[in-house]
């Protein structure tokens, strides 16, 4: 018990030294809670169209008003936050997963594979990815489902993690403790999993958050062009509808302001989280605070 308290105390003390990490985590947690608690209190079915009166301003019955299709925007925000977070986290996780595999293949084993993987990620990094995603998404027949959206976005979110992990593995590979581990009879897989991975954790976390932010950005960008999951009330699609039904000109601020605020908060939170994690991974940055 005492040890646990000490540990918690240590975490709290660290958070005070790293306010970016603390505020980033709090913002993301607040959004997750908004989604979880919201879906307990307000029925998600109210986020479907034609379930309420159309174009109502905020009132006690509809706290954030309704849109032209009669969606309760409070419910839409709760469901939408969840959906957008899910797209971001899952696509980010897939991107990171591919990044880990390719980064290790490239950095640890090197050789011809390294040339190919490094070349591919370098080439793709200079290409504006959103437009390539537009090509993919516009050719998909029918309505784009949530899972498809996740796959589309994830398909091009592995390059940055790959590069970051490759660079770290390259320097770590030469360290003395890796040599010792090899001499003591570990095979390559054991070295990777038991020796390199634990040391990479802060970098992996930072890469994951960065990949998540990239995935959310890409999914909202696609939604802006009408290539999002059209039947789902994600935050990006809500703004898309509000633009295509001229919500701003009709004075329906309650339609576009809440998603804008939530998206902005999400990006600020993810950004602070990345900056905070960078500080853990890169102690050299600490002096700059």
């Amino acid at each position: 018990m005492n040890a646990l308290r000490k540990r918690l105390w240590g975490v709290a003390a660290y958070c005070r030294r790293n306010p970016k990490l603390l505020s980033g985590v709090s913002i993301i947690l607040a959004l997750v809670l908004f989604w979880l608690i919201g879906s307990l209190l307000v029925s998600p079915t109210r986020a479907a169209s034609l379930t309420g009166l159309p174009s109502q301003p905020p009132s006690w019955q509809y706290l954030l008003g309704t849109d032209t299709h009669g969606r309760d925007l409070l419910a839409v925000m709760m469901v939408g936050t969840g959906l957008t977070l899910r797209i971001g986290f899952l696509a980010g996780a897939i991107g990171l997963g591919i990044g880990i595999i390719l980064g290790f293949l490239s950095g640890y084993y090197g050789g011809f594979l390294d040339t190919v993987i490094k070349g591919a990620s370098d080439v793709l990094l200079t290409v504006p990815l959103l437009v390539v995603l537009v090509v993919i998404a516009s050719m998909i027949p029918g309505v784009i489902s949530l899972n498809l959206m996740i796959l589309i976005v994830a398909s091009l979110s592995w390059m940055l993690p790959t590069r970051a992990i490759r660079a770290q593995v390259l320097t770590m590979r030469e360290k003395a403790y890796i040599q010792v581990a090899k001499l003591s009879g570990m095979n390559n897989l054991e070295v990777i999993v038991k020796e390199i991975m634990p040391n990479l954790l802060p970098y992996l976390a930072a890469s994951f958050v960065a990949a998540t932010a990239g995935a959310v950005l890409a999914s909202i960008g696609l939604s802006f062009l009408g290539l999002g999951p059209q039947h789902l009330p994600t935050l990006g699609m809500t703004i898309y509808w509000s633009i295509s039904f001229a919500a701003m000109l009709r004075g329906m601020w309650w339609w576009w302001v809440p998603p804008t605020v939530i998206i902005a908060a999400l990006f600020v939170g993810l950004f602070l989280l990345t900056a905070g994690l960078d500080e853990i991974a890169n102690p050299r940055l600490r002096r700059g605070i």
Partner: peptide
């Protein structure tokens, strides 16, 4: 600046437009 750098361009556009 921290906040600005995190908010995507198009949201900035919406806010300015309003």
């Amino acid at each position: 600046f921290l906040t600005l750098s995190a908010v995507p361009y198009y949201l900035m556009g919406l806010i300015l437009l309003f």
